[in-house]
Computed example of a mutant assay.
Amino acid sequence: MKQQGFLDIINPVKDKMYRLALRLLVSKEAAEDATQDVILKLWNQKHKLKDYTNLEAFAMTVTKNYCLDELKAKKNNNLRIVHQNYENNSVSPQRGLELKDELNWINGIVSELPEQQKIVFQLRDIEQLEFEEIIEITNMKSTAVRVALSRARKKIRESLTKKHNYGIAKN
């Protein structure tokens, strides 16, 4: 198939391909790129085009599949970007202030805990020590460590819930 013969076949379908690509990809530039890429694919397969009874349907199917592949690739790239941001631990200034405020509240609550609960909470939830290490450090029994930790967490949770519910009720 010669170039002019190919263009005679593709030109009537080209606008439909573009509109389909635009519907799927939303961006005009992406739709134009997709249409050009599909036309190039069809050009590279021009010797097989005569085998198709409905070339328009074939071109539209290739366009649809190409656009869906592009969307899948874009989604994967977006997921990678989100994952990289997560690993990067980049936090917006507003979120940073919120976290700082929350930590200040938690520190205030922890400072009001009974001494045993404060120590157990610090060792387990902040220092991330194992229960065996906490038992060794505090000379407390296993059950006493678990009860102290449970009570400390409960007190912190209740205080934070009260703070957040109060903030909601205020607004």
Rank of each mutant, 00 (worst) to 15 (best):
D15E: 14
L25A: 04
D37R: 06
N77H: 11
Q84Y: 13
L25G: 00
A59R: 01
K100Y: 10
D33E: 15
E133D: 15
V110T: 09
F6N: 03
D8K: 12
Q128P: 00
L129W: 01
S111A: 15
V26W: 03
T138E: 05
I168Y: 08
Q4E: 15
N104I: 07
S27R: 10
T63C: 08
L99E: 14
N139H: 14
V62E: 03
V145E: 00
K50M: 08
P12R: 10
V62P: 00
K118P: 08
F121K: 00
K118V: 01
I168R: 14
M17L: 05
M17P: 01
I134Y: 02
L25D: 00
L160C: 07
A30D: 11
I135Y: 02
T161G: 05
L97R: 12
N165F: 05
E133R: 10
N78C: 06
V147T: 12
K64I: 04
Q45G: 10
M140F: 05
M60Q: 09
K64W: 03
R19S: 06
K100D: 13
D8M: 07
E102N: 14
Q3Y: 08
M1G: 15
I9S: 10
G167S: 13
I135V: 13
E98K: 13
L49H: 05
Q36D: 10
A57C: 09
Y166C: 07
H47W: 07
D51Q: 11
K16Q: 13
F6D: 06
T138R: 01
I10V: 06
M17I: 03
I156H: 04
L97N: 14
A30C: 09
N104K: 09
M17R: 00
L25F: 03
G96I: 03
L123M: 13
L49F: 04
N139F: 11
